[in-house]
Design a protein around this nucleic acid. Structure first.
Length: 274
DNA sequence: AGAGATACCTGGGAGC
DNA sequence: TGCTCCCAGGTATCTC
């Protein structure tokens, strides 16, 4: 599934393929997505030109002229491709945007968790207003230990759910929260407000490192996304805790356990994570 | 107000 | 073998 590093790479690739191109035609195959795709047909987008592609959290925006933009979120099974019109339509492709260079921008999502919407974008704005409430970017300097410590102090939820809260920091999903807490030796069930400043420093350090590592390892997924089909990035082989319930801990050999937190499975080592 | 629960959706794997 | 059931995931929306 596209995590933040992959979304970043997808955005860079899309930028190369879309910017400067004009929309020739739009085809919608599945009108009733999580949010309906029909507004894309009703809006007059013929001839609109792509100006830029940007990432915010796990969202991508594709800015058009005429003060509008597409807002994309890939959920857990969303894929985008830019391919020649001759490539046959796949089963779960829901939207085609034909470009004036003869290629087709294709939006695929098996589980239909993805979002593809049209938004207003007043001049000077970088992102549509619906993204205003998102938290800081984990790779930016605003995501630091004092910030995290202050945020943690005012919530009652557990560390794991806190790290996954998009209003605090964006793009840390179940996998990265699980891996970060394992790397830090912090029990995911602990109250976030019990985190010390040094522990927050660890979390910031490790989450940035893990994201950076995933960006490198995710490269293969990106080439697949444009060329063939989405095989998983190599980062899956780096996982130390996520998906390893019942397996021995790489550090101490204790059996990895799992617990439900906020409706999500959290794997952890009961010996290493305190 | 804030936090937990639930709906959304489908493919794949486990179990019978 | 073939069927049913459950799980995975992020976000919006609800309920308490």
């Amino acid at each position: 599934m596209p995590e933040l590093p992959e979304v970043e790479n997808i955005g860079r690739a899309l930028k190369k393929h879309l910017v400067g191109k004009k929309i020739r035609n739009i085809e919608v195959f599945t009108p009733a997505m999580r949010t309906p795709l029909t507004p894309l047909l009703e809006a007059d987008l013929m001839g609109a030109r792509f100006l830029d592609v940007r990432r915010r959290g796990r969202y991508l925006t594709a800015e058009l002229d005429r003060e509008r933009c597409f807002l994309m979120h890939f959920g857990m099974s969303g894929v985008v491709r830019v391919e020649p019109v001759s490539v046959p339509k796949r089963k779960h492709e829901h939207l085609f945007i034909h470009l004036d260079d003869g290629n087709v921008f294709r939006f695929e999502c098996t589980r239909r968790f993805s979002i593809f919407e049209l938004h207003e974008l007043s001049s000077g704005e970088r992102f549509p207003a619906v993204l205003d409430k998102l938290g800081v970017e984990p790779l930016e300097k605003e995501f630091n230990a004092p910030f995290l410590h202050a945020e943690a102090a005012r919530v009652k939820t557990c560390v794991k759910n806190f790290l996954m809260d998009n209003a605090v920091v964006v793009g840390i999903g179940n996998i990265y929260a699980t891996e970060t807490l394992f790397a830090c030796g912090i029990d995911p069930r602990r109250r976030a407000s019990t985190l010390t400043l040094p522990e927050c420093k660890k979390i910031v350090k490790h989450s940035k490192e893990i994201l950076a590592c995933a960006i490198e390892s995710g490269g293969t997924t990106i080439s697949d996304f444009l060329n063939v089909d989405g095989s998983k990035g190599e980062f899956v082989s780096e996982l130390k805790a996520y998906g390893r319930t019942g397996c021995p801990c790489f550090k101490c050999g204790t059996t990895i356990e799992s617990v439900q937190l906020g409706g999500r499975t959290s794997a952890f080592c009961p010996h290493c994570q305190k």
